[in-house]
Design a protein around this nucleic acid. Structure first.
Lengths: 207, 207
DNA sequence: CACTGATTTAAACAAGTGTTTTAATCGGTT
DNA sequence: AACCGATTAAAACACTTGTTTAAATCAGTG
């Protein structure tokens, strides 16, 4: 049990931080879950914030990397977009996915802390770059980068809304109705169709 | 100064709550801003949560109501959508807008509390309904309500992303570049073009 | 002016927080 | 077995928080 304690604490911290956020989570709850003493946090990490950063680091290190070498770049761009959306929506919405890793990343996206910069560099950034490249293939060649970015935000905005505004959505159209929308396949189909039409229009307009 | 104190406290509470959220805001800071004694909150409102609900209530009561009678329903549907987007983006992004009202509503959208239900009923709901009606005019007549809802979420998702993920956006493409995107006119044009193309495609597909 | 109820004030309270201290315990080494 | 550094444990510390108390002040009325 040399530094198994350290491991258990990071794991418990990820669990609790992802559910309650940095401030709301208490060291006592984390240590209770990890079956460790409260002093262990200061002994192993120094303070609460360092532990938090450690948990975020672990979250995005252990999440599936965007291995560009294994991304099917030879697929038609519209198929690549469909695939990208399916992956993103699965990561974000799939309730079957166990573990706190994605939840913590999502929380950090909504409430950035000092850990965010590294998260953008190591997790969000590469994915965003991939999306932009896919979009570039579907947009006029001479389109300024800034406009490509606008399209990228349009694509991810449609996904994020289901993750970050779920409670409002439930109140808005009823809980059952909203949960019925939570089908990755259905959402993938809708969003990719919607986006591909928007992209095609931008392509035509440029002619 | 009979219940001017009460007014000052609600106003200061809205200010602080909108910036820091319910938990992070402290009664002492609110009362400091309101130039009132800490005990005044309990005297006038009972407890912190009641004060919060009061502030949210004031926020959406004083915000511009969706007066359906003065909405230009005779405009072409695509123009209505453009107008709707412009209003929504202006409310959400315009930094010139003083006051905490919108900021508090936005915060409640991301972190719903007990005040959210009433907010959905009195503020978000009517606006969402209006959007759905506009979209219905742009979509096949026989399209199921559920699919109209999907399109509505696609529209508002593209707006919300600029409000709720601003910090990540700044890190992602650089602060200056991101702020340059924050032009209501430009965003309105992009999002409405993008959406109108998606809607047109859904219309054609139904033929 | 004196009385009364509403309001304000300063101080204290009780609970919870991150952190530190100090002593006990463990595991390996000589 | 005795020692030693690393780790764990329980308790205390210092501070912040929402809330309450009890006295002081104010505003209106007889």
């Amino acid at each position: 049990m040399t530094d198994e304690t350290r491991e258990r604490i990071v794991d418990a911290a990820g669990e609790v931080f992802s559910q309650k956020g940095f401030q709301q989570a208490t060291i006592r709850e984390i240590c209770g879950l990890a079956e460790a003493n409260v002093a262990a946090v200061n002994y192993h990490f120094g303070d609460k914030e360092t532990l938090y950063v450690e948990a975020v680091k672990r979250a995005h290190c252990e999440s599936v990397p965007v291995d560009r070498s294994e991304w099917p770049s030879d697929l038609p761009a519209d198929e690549q977009l469909r695939l990208f959306l399916e992956k993103m929506l699965t990561d974000m919405l799939d309730r079957e996915t166990p573990g706190w890793h994605t939840a913590l990343i999502m929380r950090e996206m909504a409430h950035p802390t000092s850990a965010c910069e590294e998260l953008v560099r190591g997790y969000i950034g590469p994915r965003f770059e991939l999306l932009c490249e896919i979009l570039r293939a579907l947009l006029p060649q001479d389109m300024p980068g800034r406009d490509v970015t606008l399209h990228a935000f349009s694509v991810i905005g449609q996904c994020l809304v289901y993750r970050f505004h779920r409670p409002v959505g439930r109140l808005l159209i009823g809980e059952d109705e909203f949960e019925a929308l939570f089908d990755v396949e259905r959402l993938t189909r809708h969003i990719s169709n919607f986006c591909l039409a928007g992209l095609a229009a931008a392509r035509e307009e440029a002619l």
